[in-house]
């Protein structure tokens, strides 16, 4: 495991195309004309198939960054390019309680005009992918928190977007379930080849999942650190890197307050 800032990912298969999945150029964001810079001069390029984790304290602009990528907000300055659009997963599963698990997954496809028969098949497939085969007919309230978040993942994947954005998707889960879902996400990421941008306040989680970790700091919101994690990961190296990033996060936090 190396932690250099300049090297490229070592898997050339992931870099077949030269068009980045996400490109931000000098992006600035204010919510009101005379308000503070929530983001200032953010430059970011994410290659197709990357798994990038963004960490930062509250108020560092990471949720705003995600909202820009999802198209929920428009930048005040600079440009945001997301190839083929992005799917977004929230901290809460936010499933619709009047639909079954499968119905929730199917709705994503229905809203993008997929036919009934194909929807059904594909939803079953996606539920199997997140290890919920056979749970399709269950009502949302019959599922545990972890299962609901897996349905939400299946729903996000059903959108058939190249980029999957995740806003602290595991924050509300217990530690054991979170661990399990980390494995699930990694497996799904490897098998679907999606580009994943995951926001978290948990540095350990970022190091566990990310092939690249970005650290954001607030006032104004910007990217202040970047670590690439390549090759096989050892437990010790992960602990070491987590400590390094956590220290840096604290430093930025003290600078901000």
């Amino acid at each position: 495991m190396t932690t250099t800032a300049a090297t490229l990912p070592d898997d050339p298969a992931r870099l077949r195309t030269t068009t980045p999945a996400v490109r931000l150029r000098q992006v600035g964001k204010r919510y009101t004309a005379d308000g503070p810079d929530v983001l200032r001069e953010v430059d970011l390029t994410i290659e197709p198939g990357e798994l990038v984790c963004v960490v930062g304290a509250s108020g560092s602009g990471k949720s705003t960054l995600l909202a820009l990528l999802a198209g929920l907000e428009q930048p005040t300055s600079g440009s945001v390019e997301v190839a083929c659009g992005a799917a977004l997963m929230f901290q809460e599963p936010a499933l619709f309680p009047w639909l079954s698990a499968r119905g929730n997954v199917e709705l994503a496809m229905r809203l993008s005009g997929v036919g009934r028969h194909e929807r059904h098949e594909r939803a079953e497939e996606l539920l199997r992918l997140v290890h919920l085969g056979g749970w399709g007919d269950s009502a949302v309230h019959e599922l545990s928190g972890g299962m609901r978040q897996r349905v939400a993942l299946a729903r996000a994947l059903a959108q058939e977007r190249d980029v999957l954005l995740m806003d602290e998707p595991f924050a509300a889960l217990d530690a054991a379930t979170r661990d399990l879902l980390h494995d699930e996400l990694e497996r799904v990421w490897l098998s679907t080849g999606r580009t994943v941008v995951l926001i978290t306040h948990d540095v350990g989680e970022a190091v566990r999942l990310g092939r690249r970790v970005l650290l954001m700091a607030g006032r104004p919101g910007r990217v202040v650190g970047e670590w690439r994690i390549e090759g096989p990961r050892s437990e010790a190296a992960a602990v070491g890197l987590t400590a390094v990033i956590t220290d840096r996060l604290r430093e930025e936090h003290h600078r901000a307050v």
Binding site: L88, F90, A94, F96, W98, L99, L111, S112
Partner: peptide, 27 residues
């Protein structure tokens, strides 16, 4: 409000939002 945000993220226009999100939620 989260339901509406989910609808937006899933690509629902005003009509689809009413039909698939707002009305069922208000049922």
């Amino acid at each position: 409000p989260l339901y509406r945000r989910v609808g937006t993220v899933l690509g629902a226009g005003p009509l689809a939002m009413t039909r698939h999100v707002v009305l069922p939620a208000a049922l």
